[in-house]
Design a protein around this nucleic acid. Structure first.
Lengths: 328, 328
DNA sequence: CCTAGTTTGGAAACCGGTTTCCAAAACCGT
DNA sequence: ACGGTTTTGGAAACCGGTTTCCAAACTAGG
């Protein structure tokens, strides 16, 4: 076992004190250039690299931020991470990512493990309660939630309510009369989408119909079609909690011989990269996942340098009308 | 700023020595039960949690493994991470993930940052050279590569060559005569796939045609169709480096009015979750991404507990014939 | 009741850095 | 050559744990 050289080894090699090496390497104090040269020579000769943990222990700064996401197989979260990584890299922060596997217990573990190793956390798609999240935030160990708006906790989110109103209105304008919403897990995002949907539908004098999904994914979408076709009268438009649900639903309807969009229009929320490549292509409110990641990192870093009052940042979704919703 | 309680605080509160607290908390030495009780009371009263960095510094074990992946937007890598996370969680290891953004320079940075914080690394889809990867591996800081087989470096990979032979043979059996391969980046995976393809095509007495992609993704696939249609005679089957390429290509061919699979069969390598949901559904060799992640973690942990000679593990892909390849 | 053997738990060194503080050395103008 | 100011770099404390080693206290046997 060849040990990595320590700062003491370098000091010995250069014939100076450990503190001197530290000062030179970190450029924290200007020293005589001949001394600096000696130190640098020793550093490169030994291939010295400071021990990260010792450094963090001593300085209290890890220069890393943690991200905990609901599910790494969901493209929404991976785009978010992409945005976050790019932004963090610009600011010389390391991003440490972990997948909560949609499991609150596991999420708790990850949060405490990651928190101990980073300067702050971004929680995207958290399944914890508002109270738990509120308790987690502190000025010295800030957290930023994405897609959860909680008083007292910094957050970045999409104006889901407005997005839902826009999407529902789009269907109404196309002449749809019986619009159904396939609702997702009972957290902020779904509440807002459902509220926006309800509002728009009621405003237009139509009746609302909300069906819960078993799971907000491909399977959930496939299973929903059975439920859906028990209802009477049949909807002429379905708004899905997310793209994956819509894709599952469309596949299932196809096997039932139901024509999209002639018999029923399908729309969703999401930013799935293949939404435009499906047959028919999928109309959705495009969620700016990558920007959410960007803004979350920026907000977190702001909180780190000067802990201010928790801010809430809202982003906007944009309507992408495609073939899955019928022309009027 | 409320500091977290340290082991000294607990010792003071319990009226014992710091070493005693450590022994009780880590159960490393059996003590008088009344002493243990005092310590536990103090621990829970103060809400003590050991400082991770101090612990790692002192013990040299971080109980974390790092994963660096080529691109988090690629479903192959996210499935791999899913498998890795699940397996690591079973063994009580924390997984720290970072995205190399397909950038070798960034990959280098991430590797050294992550390496300093973990006990070992999994590198999936590395863009470093064989020599660099070889230099990185060491018994005390092992790395495992996925999809790169290098002498002296533990690895997990798919038998891509056999997979390519199988896929090509499938097309040959369907009666395809002019089979083209759209080749990806010049690393191990592509070399093997191309070699397998060449072998199968030559064996069948057909001529091979290899076209390089600009990028191995949706765009690359779309751009390839222009290149492809300049060639003469036109292929009657195209094997794509991965699913995303195939999807881009299919979209592009569709706009050109070319029928799949009647005029040209399309096949690929990958495990895209929507391959079966496209129109037409996509024939591919299904890459067991999740298992790759699982095996990589297991291999890495083995290397950690007893550093043996580097092992190479091979997994197998399975043919999923679907609508994009014509019936014979 | 005394001695040998076993628990028990504390003192101190260590992991590898950073940072404060201060004495010695170098520099300056006269 | 001298007193005062500025550089320079080292000693030591600290970050928060773990682990070795040993003295004191306790137990048991004769």
């Amino acid at each position: 076992m060849i040990k990595r050289p320590t700062i003491t080894d370098v000091a010995l090699e250069a014939g100076v004190a450990r503190s001197t090496v530290s000062k030179v390497v970190n450029k924290t104090q200007k020293l005589n250039s001949s001394t600096e040269a000696k130190v640098w020579k020793a550093v490169s000769k030994l291939g010295y690299q400071a021990n990260t943990h010792a450094q963090i222990l001593s300085t209290g700064r890890s220069w890393a931020i943690g991200i905990v996401i609901l599910d790494i197989l969901n493209p929404h979260f991976t785009s978010l991470v992409k945005g976050a990584s790019l932004t963090a890299a610009e600011k010389n922060y390391l991003v440490l990512l972990s997948d909560a596997e949609e499991n609150p217990k596991r999420e708790h573990q990850l949060i405490s493990s990651l928190r101990a190793r980073t300067d702050g956390l971004i929680l995207a798609g958290s399944r914890l309660s508002d109270a738990e999240l509120f308790a987690l935030h502190s000025p010295e160990q800030p957290i930023v939630t994405v897609g959860r708006v909680i008083e007292g906790v910094p957050s970045v989110a999409v104006d889901e309510r407005t997005a839902a109103v826009q999407l529902t209105s789009h269907l109404i304008n196309l002449g749809c009369k019986r619009i159904c919403y396939l609702s997702g897990p009972a957290f902020w995002v779904n509440q807002e989408r459902q509220a926006g949907y309800q509002h728009a539908v009621t405003q237009a004098g139509l009746t609302s119909q909300v069906l819960p999904l078993t799971t907000p994914d491909l399977n959930g979408g496939e299973q929903a079609s059975a439920q859906l076709w028990k209802t009477n009268p049949l909807p002429d438009a379905i708004i899905c909690y997310n793209d994956m649900v819509a894709i599952g639903l469309m596949a299932s309807l196809k096997t039932l011989g139901i024509k999209i969009p002639e018999e029923v229009s399908i729309a969703a929320f999401g930013n799935h990269p293949l939404a435009a490549h499906l047959t028919p292509s999928l109309t959705h409110m495009e969620i700016p996942s990558q920007q959410l990641g960007e803004r979350a990192v920026k907000l977190l870093l702001e909180m780190l340098e000067k802990p201010e009052k928790p801010q809430h940042i809202l982003q906007y979704a944009v309507l992408r009308p495609r073939e899955s919703t019928r022309a009027s």
